[in-house]
Amino acid sequence: MSANTSKKVGNSGGKLSRAGMGRPKGAVNKATAEVRSLAQEHGPDAIEVLVYLMHKAQSERSRIAAATELLDRAYGKSVAAVDHTSGGKPLPTAPAGVLVVPAGMSVEDWEKLAAQGGGSHG
């Protein structure tokens, strides 16, 4: 290879690509950037529509969907619940003053059980 020739690396769709050539990984192409810019111009109007739908839509499903979209954009999507156990064993007890009610048991039933000495207050 001569000093003026770049080293060919990789295989992009059947074509060899030169190291350091092309758009950097993660960079948005020009068309995507233009579309994003145009869409952002309508952002305030879109939020106004979501607020309107949240308050005035006839269907409850539509009102909930609009409210969810607004909350997701304001605070991020909610995180999925995860069952934290250690090999099937429960996690250590909750800190003092924290009431932990087993799933499927009402607070009233738990309090009755605890009053009989069968529950743990942490």
Rank of each mutant, 00 (worst) to 15 (best):
R63P: 05
V49L: 12
G122D: 13
H42V: 06
R73P: 00
R23H: 01
G20Q: 03
R61Y: 14
S120L: 14
S86H: 13
V82I: 15
G13V: 06
E108G: 04
A80P: 09
H84S: 08
V101Q: 05
G22M: 04
A114M: 04
A66I: 06
K7C: 00
K15I: 12
I64E: 15
G97F: 10
R23L: 10
P95R: 15
K30H: 04
K30I: 03
T93D: 13
A46C: 15
K8C: 02
H55F: 05
L16K: 11
H121S: 10
G26L: 03
S62A: 15
P92N: 11
D83L: 14
R61A: 15
T85K: 13
G20T: 02
G119S: 12
G87W: 13
M21W: 05
A67E: 11
S37Q: 15
V9H: 01
E41Q: 15
P102N: 05
G43Y: 10
A81Y: 07
P102Y: 05
A115D: 11
D45I: 13
T32I: 07
V82K: 15
S106H: 02
A66C: 11
M1A: 12
P24Q: 08
G10D: 03
Q40F: 07
T68K: 14
G117K: 05
T32S: 09
D83H: 08
R63T: 01
L53A: 12
R36I: 06
Y52Q: 06
T93A: 15
E60N: 11
I64D: 14
L38Q: 13
A103F: 07
